[in-house]
Nucleic acid binder design. Structure first.
Lengths: 115, 115
DNA sequence: CAGGCATATTCCTATTGAGGCATATTGCCC
DNA sequence: GGGCAATATGCCTCAATAGGAATATGCCTG
């Protein structure tokens, strides 16, 4: 995870990744669109690749870089563990939990009733 | 977004954030659990706070740090834009698109060829 | 209001990494 | 195979930053 975040923590790398969202692109295309020197783009792509965020496939003498699904899935799974913090649906879940607790109080070993 | 990623790109900061997932904690608690010096923890928390990832609330002379919902929501929204890359549900959507293309081929001027 | 906690800030050093430039590598075509 | 196009790598410099230790600030209690 940390590597993923580190890869996206650089502004230009972030821009590259965002650009790739539109579809696979060769290096010089990226370099042109984002006004970056080709070597820096290659270096950034290397980092993104090592972080598992992009993948390459050679097309003649050029390389097509594309967003890699798996990394995003991992990121999503990670984020999912924090869902309770921001998803309103968890409020409903909280409600359910309350209900269950109430029920338990009634059925299980007859502790006193209610508050 | 970049700031968010940058904040989580440091291993110790990441650990702190993960720890806070379990609930709000004062600085010295974090410092103790993660075996980090108190000053570094304070510094990391500062970065996390400026990135909007955590929030503080003073409790006497200590500060309770906690995960901030909004940042995670933003992160989720960002990730959502990449859903097509990894969510299987989009396969169905692809199917629909194929159908539409087929229909178009029948009605519009007979372009052909696609993968 | 003195003393003590909990936390924040400052100063320092060492490392890391991004950008610029030159050059190496790869794979095509004639 | 020579040459060209697309990309990768190496070297350099500079700025950013994490960690360590010392110190400052805030806030409570007696």
């Amino acid at each position: 995870m940390v590597d993923t975040f580190a890869a996206l923590a650089d502004p230009n790398r972030y821009r590259i990744f965002e650009l790739l969202r539109a579809g696979p692109r060769p290096v010089n295309d990226i370099s042109g669109r984002l006004q970056l020197n080709q070597p820096q783009v290659s270096k950034h792509l290397r980092v993104l690749k090592q972080a598992g965020l992009v993948d390459v496939q050679p097309r003649a003498q050029q390389r097509l870089y594309e967003v890699r699904a798996d990394s995003l899935r991992q990121l999503h799974d990670w984020l999912e563990r924090y869902r309770q913090f921001w998803d309103a649906r968890f409020d409903e879940l909280d409600g359910l939990i309350e209900e269950i607790k109430e029920k338990e109080k009634e059925t299980s070993h007859g502790r006193k009733r209610r508050k």
